[in-house]
Amino acid sequence: MLEEHVDLTVLNTLRDVMETEYPALLHIFIRDSQARVTDLNGLIQAADFSAASQTHLDQLGLLAHSFKGSSSNMGAAHLAQLCGELEDLVRGQGAVSEARVTQLVQDIDSEFCVVRDIFDVELQTTLASH
């Protein structure tokens, strides 16, 4: 169940590499990712949002690209994959379906909630063991 969302070997490696900074890394990832999800939602829910606006698509693409990179580094493979799909969608050729964008942002939002909960537990456990 947990493995579907976060790769535990990656987490082990991160714990090993970061040593005492491991909790800080988890904390920063959760905080920044929360901000990204908020930004994504803010963008598509804005009154003037249009899947035909290149500016909006570029903003979405940049956010998705960056989010993809950091979640892949944290072992959140499924989240990274969803971000990648969004990035590909908004950067692809031809018209972009607004419904598909909305759907992917919702999927990212809910996947992030699961990942965040897992990392929250990981953070508490790590802090408690110190």
Binding site: L14, V17, M18, E19, E21, A24, L25, I28, F29, D32, S66, G69, S70, N73, M74
Partner: peptide, 16 residues
């Protein structure tokens, strides 16, 4: 890197 967690991770790897 503008991404704080990626930057932090990479710094740790390179320092090590």
């Amino acid at each position: 890197d503008d991404n704080a967690s990626d930057r932090m991770l990479l710094s740790a790897i390179i320092s090590r």
